Every structure is written in structure tokens, then in C-alpha cells.
Computed example of a mutant assay.
Amino acid sequence: MSRTNLFYSLGVIPALMGLGHLAPAIGAIHTATGSYQFPGRLLGLIGTISALVDSIDKYKDVPLSSRPPKWIWKTWTYGLWAIVLVCAVMSGLQTVILVGRVLPVGLLWGTRCIPQFSKSDGLFLTKPKSLLGGAKSLVVALCMASVSAEASMAYYCHPEGFQCSEKALRLRGFQLACLYQFLRETACDIRDISEDTVEGLSTLPVKLGKQNTMLLMSLVGLLLDLILTQSVAVTADGIVVRYPQLTYSFLRIGSTIAAYSLILRYPRENVWAWGTMSLFGLAPVLSAQAALRS
């Protein structure tokens, strides 16, 4: 891997991904408060942690001979850790707990740290992501929704006296963050089918293939978006369809899947394609979470 590709892979793409994960956070704040607010300390914590975890995970996959000089790598990671610590101190204990409780999972995601035993190989260590199989993208979605959406709502709703939306509405905002994060992670797993097959990871795309996985994403995404935004609701009087919310659900999922299909034509080395994916891949969740307040 060239130095330019390393720069993009370990620095630029994780930074864009960190910014991209602010979309469900901002949407969750709107769900909880009814307005768009941009608390720098909170968003800085969420974005920097997302960038740090992604950068470290990618660094572990780089061969030793191709890794950047240690002083460059340490400057980058220590700088990110410094931002995390400053934002954590300013954000409060409740927020830090919600964000930090999944941090060990992210940092150990690609590390052989879990003991396993088999008759053929005896006792050996394996990576957390290797144990999850088809549930890998779902677990990542839950973790990242906790870091972004749940922590953001708690940041505003935990202080006494602050008026937040009802708990059921906030739960649906969290679930929408999980859904769109799941779609994004599954698209990345489609990109990595060949690498995951060699590594022995049984992700959904490895099991189902690209086309079947895209079909599954479309159906699950549309069904859950319709239900969570209550574009289609089942009541005692029958099925209630809300317009134009129904149209917006179809547009959100349709445009999301279409965008993923377009980007998946490019290899992961294509900085423009996957940089765009990192930055804007979760943007449709803003529209979905906004629909909760309509």
C-alpha cells in the first residue's frame, strides 16, 4: 500500500466517517428536543471516538512493513485521544458512560482476544467480529446508535427540568439510527465479501451473496422505516396510511439503496467513492428522525 493510500485509509476516511456519524446524533437531538442543536463538546466526542476506533481498526489490518512511522501514528492517535478526553470532561458523566460503554468493543473489534477451543486447533484466540457471523453488522449498528443517538438524547434529557419528548418517541429515534447504521454496515460488508471470505468471516453478504443481501436491505429497510415513522400504522380501526410520509419513506430507502449500489461498483481504494460514503452514508436518517416530529 502506498503512503498516499495509507494517508487516506488511516486518516482521511476515518475523519470523514467521524463527521458522518454526527447525522444520527443531530437527528436524535431533534427527536428529543424538537429543534436542531449542535453542542460542540458532545458532537466532538462522538465524531472523534468514531474516527479513532475506525482508524485503529484499519491500522491493525495494515502489514507491519507497510505501516507509517510510529511517530506519525502516535501523533495522530494521541491527538484524537486528547480531543476525546477534553470533550468527555466537558460533556458530563452520564454522556461519557453511554459513549464509553461500547468503546472497548470498538477498540478490540479486530484484535485476537477471545479464547476459543476446537478439537483440531486446541485453544486459540479469535477476533470479536469473527464470532458474530451474520450478526456482525447488527451488533455494530447497535453500538454506533448507542454512541450517537442514545448519548445525544441523554445529553439533553438527563438534566432535571429539561423538557424532552416522550420516551417512546425517543426509542423510535434510536431504532431509526440502528436501522440506517445497519444498512450502511451491511453495504460495507458487501464491499468486503472477498476479504471476509478469505478471513473466514460469515457475514450476511458472504452467506447470501451481493444481490440477495441488497434485496434484504431494501425490504427490511422499507418495512422498518414505514413502521418506525408510522407512515403505515396498524390501529384498532385497521391500517392507517399517512401521506406524504409514505412517499418519503420510499424515497429515503430507495435513494439510500441506489446510492450504495452505485458506490459498491468502486473498490475500497477509491477515495472519492468511499469518502463520500463515509461522510454522507448516514445522512438519510436525518429525514427519518425528523419525520417523528411531524
Rank of each mutant, 00 (worst) to 15 (best):
Y59D: 10
A145T: 07
T48S: 09
G209Y: 07
G79H: 04
V84M: 04
V241K: 01
P205H: 07
G238T: 10
S2I: 00
L19P: 00
Y36K: 00
L107Q: 04
N212F: 08
L223F: 15
G161Y: 03
Y59G: 03
L138I: 12
K136W: 11
P244A: 07
S130E: 12
G110T: 13
L222G: 03
T77Q: 13
G134Q: 09
G40N: 08
V96L: 08
P24V: 08
L16M: 09
G27W: 03
F7H: 09
I13T: 06
L176E: 08
H158Y: 15
Q289A: 08
L138E: 07
G92Y: 07
G27T: 03
F250E: 10
I257M: 14
V102L: 11
G238V: 02
R112Q: 13
S287F: 15
P24D: 12
K70S: 12
A259K: 05
F38R: 00
L131K: 04
L80V: 02
L262H: 10
G275A: 07
R172K: 13
A15P: 00
T48F: 06
A273L: 11
V86K: 01
T126C: 04
W71Q: 10
I114Q: 02
F124M: 08
H21S: 11
V234Y: 13
L80E: 11
R191F: 06
K60Q: 15
T256Q: 13
Y248W: 13
I26V: 15
P244E: 11
S9Q: 11
I253H: 00
V220M: 12
L80S: 05
